[in-house]
Design a protein around this nucleic acid. Structure first.
Length: 259
DNA sequence: ATGACTGCCTCTGGCAGA
């Protein structure tokens, strides 16, 4: 069994005690982190080494930033940065191989406000992602593309579709771009195992969203057929959202048979 | 309801997040 988790931690410096606690308690084989919000030099590598995890990371000053941690082994880095735009300097993509599984850690652009350049960037980024994922598909190996997609795929993925109807996370263009990935054949693990929806990975800090369970699902794991064939379980570590100084996201994970 | 929180770097207020 191999558990691969994704966690938008909203600042690795502010979150480090919670993050180390989660790793120690749940011990995923692989942890994909988003929004580390630090430059490369500020990444707390030693803290993870002490826990038995080896890491690669792609940081950026103040915003964004992604990392991949592996338990007891070094993630073999394949790529940093999403291809398709040489002018894109935002740290949102990191790809590695761990135990025969290709793992892509993504932090897809939020896209607000819209219309405007940020929403255009989001849609362009999603087109680039689709093109790159078609190359991953062709590898015919287990591939897991996981992270913060910043897309609420269906109305059943939010407590109130009307609440975010005007938001970039729910725009038809955002959903269509996500739907194109599903049409290409990628398996949305959480959606497949929870066809009725109602599973959240994010609760806003504001307006008592957590207390009222006003959440939605934007953190996803898309699996190639070779990975989907090995999918035995998936879930959300919801209780970690309710802890002191928590991220506004909860970790989500998939379990693959073997290795 | 121009609302609400939180983190970052710091022009300690403005930006970004979702």
């Amino acid at each position: 069994m191999m558990r691969i988790a994704s966690y938008n931690i909203n600042g690795i410096k502010a979150r480090l005690p919670r993050l180390l606690e989660w790793l120690a308690e749940t011990r995923p084989a692989v942890a994909c982190l988003q929004e580390i919000k630090t430059q490369d030099a500020g990444f707390p590598e030693a803290e993870f080494t002490a826990l038995g995890y080896q890491a690669i990371w792609h940081g950026q000053k103040g915003f964004n930033g992604v990392a991949i941690l592996a338990d007891g082994t070094a993630p073999v880095e394949i790529r940093r940065g999403l291809p398709g735009d040489d002018a894109d300097e935002q740290s949102r993509y990191l790809e590695a191989e761990v135990a025969g599984v290709r793992i892509a850690c993504i932090y897809l652009p939020n896209g607000n406000p819209l219309p405007g350049p940020k929403f255009d960037y989001k849609l362009a980024w999603m087109e680039r992602l689709r093109a790159h994922m078609q190359g991953l598909w062709a590898l015919e190996m287990p591939v897991v593309v996981t992270g913060d997609y910043n897309v609420i795929p269906f109305d059943t993925d939010i407590w109130s579709p009307r609440a975010l109807a005007e938001d970039a996370l729910m725009q038809p263009a955002s959903r269509d771009a996500y739907g194109a990935l599903l049409a290409d054949g990628w398996t949305d693990a959480l959606a497949t195992h929870n066809p009725a929806g109602g599973v959240w990975t994010y609760w806003d800090y504001q307006a008592g969203a957590w207390q009222q369970d006003h959440g939605f699902r934007i953190d996803h794991a898309l699996l190639s057929p070779e990975a989907a064939d090995r999918l035995t379980a998936c879930g959300v570590d919801k209780d970690h959202r309710g802890r002191e100084k928590a991220s506004d996201h909860a970790p989500m994970w998939v379990e693959l048979r073997g290795q």
